[in-house]
Design a protein around this nucleic acid. Structure first.
Length: 718
DNA sequence: TTGTAGCCTTTTTTT
DNA sequence: AAGGCTACAA
C-alpha cells in the first residue's frame, strides 16, 4: 500500500482534524476551507492507520452529486479499493436498508418510491375524492404539512390536536393509500428506517456494529429525524464525524435544522470540535464580498473566513437592461474567457431558480457553446419519460396506483374520467388497489361499466400481463422497447406532428440508451429493474444539450453547494427573485436567502461576475424589477461595475444608478414611497400593464407585498 | 362518454 | 411556457 502524504496535503488545522483519535467529532468548516478534503483524508486515515475496514464506514451526503464527488475523491487518493464502503445520500442509504429488511419494515419486497410529483397528484386525488375545495385546502400546503410531520417523526396517528382536522384526515387517507399501493414517499425512506430500528433491536444492533464510523457531510442540512437516526446508530459507542457550516444552511424549508450543529455537543458524548477558518478556494477580494454579505445575518455561530491567497480581481457587477442583455453579456464574457485560456467546464452559471436557465440556454445554444445543466428540467421528470417509467412500474407492481392512473388511458384508449372515477369508487369501497379493482370487473357483471369500456380494460390488463410474463427473458432496455411498442405510445407519438412529438420520441430513444448504460454500470445488481426505478425516483439525471467533454456548467445555487469553479456568473440578482419572495418573508427566511447568496459567491475561485436585469420575462409577461438588496449590502468599493461593451470598464461609486425608464408617465418611480388608505405606507417594487390596466407591485410595511391596480388603489405618492 | 382545443392559472430550492 | 380545467364536438 502506498503511503499517503498527509503532512503535505493538509494544513495544520486540517491535519489536526484528520489525525485525531476515534470518537465523536464536529468539524466547523467555512466555505472553501477544505471540508470535503478533510472528510476524505479522514476516511483514508481511518482505513490506512486505524485499521478500519472500508465496510465499517458509512459516508452520508445530501445530494447525489456530492456523494459521487466524495466517492471519486476517496478512490483517487486511496490507492486501495473502497469496496464495501457505503456512500450515499440519507435517502439512498435508507432505501438500501429497507430493501434488505422489507419484511421487518412491513413493506412489500418491491415497494415503489413516489417522487414529489406523484405525491402531489395523490393528494389532489384525495382532495377530489372527498369533495374538498382545492382553493380552501391548497394541495401544496398539505404536501408540505405531511412532509414536515414526517420529517419530524410523526405519523397521522401521532399528531397534535392543534392541527387542522381536514389536514389530519387527508394525512390519514394518504398513509392508507401508500400502504395499499405498496409505495413510500421520500420522507418515508428515512422514517420507515427509523421505525425499523426502533422496533427491531437486532437489526439496529447489526448496523451499530457495522457502521462504527459514520461520516456526515453538510451536517447543517440534517433534519430532526436524520439527527435521531444518527443518534440511534451512534449508540454512545460509535464515532460520528460530522462536518458542517451554519452559514451554508440552505435547506430550512425542507426541515433542516442548523441548530443540530449546536445540539451535537449536548446529544453526543465527548464531542471534540475543530474549526477550519482558512479559505483555500477564493481570492481575497471574493472572500471579502462574501464576508461582508453574510455579516448582515444576525443568527450565526460566528466565524470569519480568511485567506492567504492573492488579492485577485475585483468582483464584477453587470447591470443589464433585460434578461436578453444579461445572457448575451454572459456569453460574450465566456467567449472572452475562452480566449484567455479558460476551459468551458471551469465556468459556472448559477441562478436562484430553474426557470432562469431557459434564456441562458437559448443564448448558449444559439451561439454554439456546449453546456450541461445539473438538475433543472430533469430527464426523469419529463412527462414522456415518466409515462414510460410508469408502465415499468405497473409491470413490476400493478398495485402502484399512481403509475396505474398514469398509464390506464395514455395513449387514449377509451377509458375516460368517468370510468376512472367509477374504478376509484369501487377501489375505495373494497379497500384495494385500482388494478385489483379492474381485475375483479372481469369476472363479475357491473352495470356501471359499459361493455365497450370493459373491453378496453381487458385489453389494458392483458397488455400489462403479457409484458410481465416476458420480464424474465428480456433485458431492461428490451423491456422498455417492448413497452414503447406494445403500449402504442410509439405509434401515438409518431402519428402526431410537430416538434414536440419529435422531441418526445428522441427523449424516449435516449431512455433506452440510459437503460443500457445503467445495466453496464450496475452489472452486479440483483434486481436491475427495481434498482433502475428507484434510481429514476431518487436521481434526477442530468441534462446535456449535446455530448461534449468541455461544457459550461449551469445549475441552481442549491445544487452548486459543495462545488467550486474558477469562474462564476451569479445571475438574476433582483428583488423578488433573489431574495425570492414567494413564501412569507420572515426574518429567518431572508437570512436563509442571504446564506444562499453567500454559498453562491463562495463557489468562485478566481473571478466572479454578478449580474442583474432591470426587466425580465416572467410567467409570460415583461416585468420591471429592482436590484437585489444583497447588492447594496456589499460595500461599493468591493464591486466594479462593467458595461456590456467589453473594453469599457468603468469604476463607479454608484453601483445602482436610478434608471431613466423608471420615470413613468404616471408619475411614479420604482422605489417610490406611496400611501394607501387601508394598507398604509409602502414602496413600489415593480409594475405591469398600461393605462387602466396598470398594476403596481407594492411592498407595504404592515401588510406585505401586494399587486394593486393604479386606477382603483387611490394611492398617495409621497 | 371520450377526446381535444383553447382558456386560465401559476412557478423555489432537493430527496 | 406548461399543466390543469372547461366547454364543446363527435
Amino acid at each position: 500500500m502506498s503511503q499517503l502524504d498527509f503532512e503535505n496535503s493538509l494544513n495544520d488545522q486540517q491535519l489536526i482534524a484528520v489525525n485525531c483519535n476515534e470518537g465523536n467529532k464536529l468539524v466547523l468548516a467555512g466555505a472553501g476551507s477544505g471540508k470535503t478534503r478533510v472528510l476524505t483524508y479522514r476516511i483514508a486515515k481511518l482505513i490506512q492507520d486505524f485499521n478500519v475496514r472500508p465496510s465499517d464506514v458509512l459516508a452520508l451526503t445530501f445530494t447525489n452529486k456530492a456523494s459521487r464527488e466524495m466517492k471519486d475523491r476517496i478512490e483517487s487518493i486511496l490507492k486501495i479499493s473502497s469496496q464495501g464502503l457505503w456512500f450515499g445520500t440519507f435517502h439512498g442509504i435508507c432505501r438500501r436498508i429497507l430493501k434488505i429488511h422489507w419484511r421487518e419494515a412491513e413493506l412489500s419486497e418491491r415497494f415503489t418510491i413516489l417522487d414529489s410529483q406523484d405525491q402531489l397528484r395523490l393528494i389532489k386525488r384525495i382532495l377530489k375524492g372527498n369533495n374538498y375545495d382545492e382553493k380552501l385546502y391548497d394541495p401544496k400546503s398539505i404536501q408540505s404539512f405531511i412532509n414536515r410531520k414526517k420529517d419530524n417523526g410523526h405519523r397521522s396517528d401521532n399528531i397534535s390536536d392543534k392541527d387542522d382536522e381536514v389536514y389530519v384526515a387527508i394525512f390519514k387517507e394518504y398513509e392508507n393509500i401508500l400502504k395499499q399501493t405498496m409505495s413510500v414517499d421520500f420522507a418515508d425512506l428515512i422514517l420507515k428506517t427509523y421505525e425499523l430500528f426502533l422496533s427491531h433491536n437486532q437489526i439496529l444492533n447489526y448496523y451499530i456494529k457495522r457502521f462504527k464510523h459514520i461520516m456526515v457531510d453538510e451536517f447543517q442540512d440534517t433534519n430532526l429525524l436524520q439527527f435521531k437516526l444518527l443518534k440511534l446508530l451512534n449508540n454512545d459507542t460509535g464515532s460520528l464525524y460530522a462536518v458542517g457550516d451554519d452559514d451554508q444552511s440552505i435547506y430550512g424549508w425542507r426541515g433542516a435544522l442548523s441548530k443540530n450543529i449546536r445540539s451535537f455537543t449536548d446529544q453526543f458524548t465527548d464531542v471534540e470540535i475543530f474549526k477550519l477558518e482558512q479559505n483555500y478556494r477564493s481570492t481575497n477580494k471574493i472572500l471579502k464580498v462574501a464576508n461582508s454579505l453574510i455579516s448582515h445575518n444576525k443568527n450565526r455561530l460566528g466565524k470569519e473566513l480568511w485567506t492567504a491567497s492573492e488579492r485577485g480581481e475585483t468582483v464584477k457587477i453587470f447591470e443589464a437592461y433585460n434578461n436578453d442583455e444579461e445572457s448575451s453579456f454572459i456569453v460574450d464574457k465566456i467567449k472572452m474567457l475562452e480566449r484567455d485560456g479558460y476551459k468551458k467546464s471551469e465556468i459556472a452559471i448559477l441562478y436562484r431558480n430553474n426557470f432562469l436557465s431557459r434564456r441562458l440556454e437559448e443564448e448558449l445554444n444559439g451561439r454554439g457553446i456546449p453546456y450541461i445543466i445539473y438538475g433543472g428540467f430533469r430527464f426523469f421528470e419529463r412527462s414522456e419519460i415518466k409515462d414510460m417509467i410508469a408502465y415499468l412500474r405497473v409491470i413490476v407492481n400493478p398495485d402502484d396506483d399512481s403509475a396505474f392512473e398514469r398509464t390506464i388511458n395514455n395513449p387514449p384508449r377509451g377509458i375516460g374520467q368517468k370510468t376512472i372515477d367509477i374504478i376509484r369508487k369501487f377501489a375505495k369501497a373494497d379497500n384495494r388497489s385500482l388494478w385489483k379493482t379492474i381485475k375483479s370487473f372481469q369476472n363479475q357483471n357491473n352495470d356501471e361499466i359499459s361493455s365497450r369500456v370493459k373491453t378496453s380494460l381487458t385489453n389494458y390488463i392483458s397488455l400489462i400481463e403479457i409484458i410481465s410474463n416476458e420480464i424474465n427473458d428480456l433485458s431492461l432496455d428490451e423491456i422498455l422497447v417492448k413497452i414503447y411498442k406494445e403500449s402504442k405510445l410509439k405509434s401515438y407519438y409518431s402519428e402526431q406532428k410537430g416538434e414536440e412529438a419529435i422531441s418526445k420520441q428522441e427523449n424516449i430513444e435516449e431512455l433506452f440508451i440510459t437503460a443500457e448504460n445503467f445495466i453496464k454500470n450496475n452489472y452486479d445488481s440483483e434486481n436491475i429493474i427495481d434498482d433502475f426505478l428507484d434510481n429514476a425516483a431518487l436521481e434526477a439525471g442530468d441534462y446535456q444539450s449535446k455530448l461534449d467533454n468541455d461544457p459550461v456548467q449551469l445549475m441552481t445555487i442549491h445544487s452548486a453547494k459543495g462545488l467550486e469553479f474558477p469562474v462564476v456568473f451569479l445571475t438574476g440578482l433582483e428583488e423578488g427573485i433573489f431574495p425570492n419572495e414567494n413564501r412569507k418573508s420572515g426574518e429567518d427566511f431572508l437570512e436563509e436567502e442571504r446564506r444562499l447568496c453567500y454559498v453562491a459567491i463562495t463557489r468562485a475561485m478566481k473571478s466572479l461576475y454578478i449580474t442583474f436585469a432591470n426587466a425580465r420575462y416572467l410567467h409570460g409577461s415583461y416585468n420591471y424589477l429592482m436590484p437585489s438588496r444583497f447588492i447594496s449590502e456589499i460595500p461599493d468599493e468591493l464591486l466594479e461595475s462593467v458595461k456590456s461593451d467589453n473594453y469599457q470598464h468603468v469604476k463607479s461609486k454608484n453601483v445602482i444608478p436610478m434608471r431613466k425608464k423608471d420615470d413613468h408617465k404616471h408619475g411614479f418611480k420604482i422605489g417610490q414611497r406611496v400611501k394607501h388608505q387601508k394598507f398604509g405606507s409602502g414602496v413600489v417594487l415593480s409594475y405591469e400593464g398600461e393605462d387602466d390596466n396598470l398594476k403596481l407591485y407594492i411592498n407595504f410595511e404592515d401588510y406585505g407585498s401586494k399587486w394593486l391596480v393604479l386606477t382603483y388603489a387611490h394611492l398617495e405618492f409621497l
